[in-house]
């Protein structure tokens, strides 16, 4: 893990802390609100769905439930790559959309971030990334955490 609890900004009494599930895609650290996340599962056979939009990776069976897996790389306009051994699927709760998950290169820790340190929009570092999905950025000690709004993943069609 490149990131650990020590990297966290120091807690202050008044600040509101939010927890994020973090993951790596294309060597960038992303985070989604932990409230939206149902579970992180190891990779299993993904059934491709032909004719589906590019960002759709396919279907997986998670304990009898069929989940749609979205390839976040496509949504973020990042170059695609093969699924590796560290790849995981982050499954979101059904409250935010019909059940779906995203394919990530590797999961990181759950980070607690002082909401004061979250910059709403970054001018600096995320040019590569489609900004419509970005909820904010947060500078960690050795990394930049890009916070994504999972509720917007399936909005575009």
């Amino acid at each position: 893990m490149q990131n650990s609890a020590e990297n966290l900004p120091i807690k202050s009494e008044t600040a509101v802390f939010k927890k994020f599930v973090t993951f790596w895609i294309h060597d960038e650290l992303f985070g989604v609100d932990i409230i939206d996340v149902k579970e992180v599962t190891p990779l299993m056979t993904i059934t491709p769905i032909f004719h589906a939009p590019d960002e759709v990776k396919g279907y997986v069976n998670i304990r009898g439930e069929i989940q749609l897996v979205i390839n976040l790389r496509v949504l973020l306009d990042l170059p695609d790559r093969e699924i590796g051994s560290d790849s995981r699927i982050v499954i979101f709760k059904p409250i935010i959309a019909e059940p779906f998950g995203i394919l990530v290169d590797k999961v990181g820790d759950v980070l607690e971030v002082n909401s004061e340190l979250i910059e709403s929009e970054s001018r600096s570092s995320t040019q590569k990334i489609k900004t419509s999905l970005v909820a904010g950025v947060c500078k960690l000690e050795d990394n930049l955490l890009i916070l994504l709004n999972a509720r917007k993943f399936l909005e575009q069609s």
Binding site: I49, H51, A52, V56, Y59, L68, A97, E98, P99, F100, L154, S157
Partner: peptide, 8 residues
């Protein structure tokens, strides 16, 4: 099918 794929 997932509603996201209803066009298929």
């Amino acid at each position: 099918m997932h509603p996201y794929l209803k066009n298929l």
